[in-house]
Amino acid sequence: MIRFENAVFEYIRRDDEGNVEGITRALDDVSVHIKRGEFVAVLGANGSGKSTFAKHINGLLVPEEGKVFVGGLDTSDDNNLLKIRQMAGMVFQNPDNQIIAQTVEEDVAFGPENMGVPTDEMQQRVDEALEKVGLIAEKDNSPNRLSGGQKQRVAIAGVLAMKPECIIFDESTAMLDPAGRKEVIATAHELNKNNNITVILITHYMNEAMGADRILVMDHGKIVMDGTPRQIFSKPEEIRKYKLEVPEITELAYRLHKAGAPMPAFVLDEDEFMEAIRSAKAAGALS
């Protein structure tokens, strides 16, 4: 579905006279392949290049060296751009700054309108998309009156109405409260499961990555770790090297394990922790 081949992208900072002050390699020789239907979380500290990575997937940025292919199409060919953007939709960070129209329904229609979808089909697409994110009742309302989580779901519907194969969440939960974050993450999982949409979730909340099929960790423009949550989070020392944290319960289990307690080195969540405690007790290893 998505293939990065030795992609390089640099930001050049210039001073007032236009002289080069410094160069940041936001993507440094990145090669990765993401399969259709995968749920991939991309983790990394601020400035690790994860947002730049996201913007390459729908052609907002094009690599300076190497290639990026989406659905087999080369993003550096301008003729492919509209098709790529339809296939790989994006949901951004700030809920207010990505809603264009004055009613929910018209905003969802914005993408299909740009694609030239015939009017008869448009209403159906819009209704279906709003139905999927559970906001059909807000159809005629102003987006300004919605909560942060709801606004992000409108943005998701806006992408869905374009019938994408992949949705990229570029830190879409960073500005939301815990309830809003849950809404967005749950929606992402539903679309992945029920509609076989490939999800790329860029986030710095470790917990949100726990439900992913696969995690990519980025640091200084490189993909430094690539594996299942189990593989990634059972290496807390390495994770911390990249200025990230391990979810607290996972960390607790790991430390207990290292201290010789009857605990596995990795537990995914609260339930697994309880499970481990119970089996330790059954084995008589726990008082």
Binding site: D177, P178, A179, P247, E248, I249, E270, M274, I277
Partner: peptide, 20 residues
């Protein structure tokens, strides 16, 4: 009320319920 308690605290509350 749409609020969470810290993960660790919640885990301990659960452990306590099971008799620890």
């Amino acid at each position: 009320m749409g609020l969470d308690i810290p993960e660790i605290t919640r885990l301990f509350l659960r452990l306590k319920k099971e008799g620890y």
